[in-house]
């Protein structure tokens, strides 16, 4: 079949196109030269070694970890409750609510960033990590809701009913039956929302003030050609971290849907 063969060839080329940028970054981070071009001069770990001694970088990393962790917890907590409501109950305004929480996915970044900056300033909240956390929680919420919805989707309601019939209180049932069963979903949601925050740039650029997160720090470094090799090394580490986190998240998500048979 000629068509099938053509499609398959195209698919492989397309995959190459998708992976091109994420593979070149790590490749040239080991290059023993400051210009990003072929041929590669030699292999070195020097650029990675230099990263450890840059204090502003370490501070930016700490900021990013903090923002990521708090936004992940806030968005997952809200997503957990909302997803349970969407999957389990019928109530007035459900469709509007479900649509609304997905809105952050499609609003243009610059509009969210500029309008939040204006809002926070009007409310007396100066650009800071707190402002970034509030913004990232907003952006990460749709991911948390979507993941928690799929975790609750195949959840067997009769387990909860059994616990209630056997005399557990509502809280006990939630803590000892519901929570353990959806735990893999929660872990998956925490990891995904953390990654969303960890990689986010435009909002942090507007809202972080003089407390840069890692992407904002990278943005400030991109302008200096002399810093290029270090930026490549740092970028490669970030790529690796994101992919690892997501693979672990996927593992947990699959485990949650398997355990619900």
């Amino acid at each position: 079949m000629k068509l099938a063969f053509g499609l398959q060839t195209y698919a492989f080329f397309y995959l190459g196109f998708l992976y091109l940028p994420v593979l070149f970054l790590p490749l040239f981070s080991f290059n023993d030269g400051t210009i990003v071009a072929f041929p590669i001069k030699g292999w070195t770990l020097e650029w990675y070694r230099q990263l450890g001694s840059q204090d502003t970088l370490i501070q930016a990393l700490v900021n990013s970890l903090l923002v990521g962790a708090v936004s992940a917890m806030l968005s997952t907590a809200m997503g957990l409750f909302a997803a349970r409501a969407y999957v389990r109950y019928r109530f007035r305004g459900k469709r509007i609510s479900e649509g609304l929480v997905m809105l952050p996915l499609v609003v243009p970044g610059i509009i969210v960033a500029s309008s939040m900056l204006v809002l926070f300033i009007s409310m007396g909240l100066k650009p800071s990590l707190t402002a970034v956390i509030l913004g990232h929680t907003f952006l990460a919420l749709p991911f948390a809701v979507a993941i928690m919805k799929s975790a609750f989707d195949d959840f067997d309601v009769s387990l909860e009913e059994a616990a209630l019939d056997l005399g557990s209180t509502v809280l006990e049932t939630f803590r000892r039956v519901t929570l353990p069963i959806v735990a893999p979903g929660i872990v998956s949601s925490l990891l995904v929302t953390f990654t969303v925050s960890f990689d986010e740039f435009v909002l942090a650029f507007f809202l972080s003030g003089n407390e840069p997160t890692l992407p904002v720090y990278i943005w400030s470094q991109i302008r200096f050609p002399a810093k290029l090799p270090n930026t490549l090394a740092l970028g490669s580490l970030l790529l690796l971290a994101s992919v690892l986190l997501l693979v672990i998240a996927e593992f947990f998500r699959r485990r949650s849907s398997k355990s619900l048979v």
Partner: peptide, 20 residues
């Protein structure tokens, strides 16, 4: 049922609604 649904989805709805 309705009240439970509204109460559980309220934090997310209010948060996004307010920030939009």
């Amino acid at each position: 049922e309705g009240a439970k649904g509204v109460a559980l989805s309220a934090p997310a709805t209010v948060y996004v609604g307010f920030l939009v």
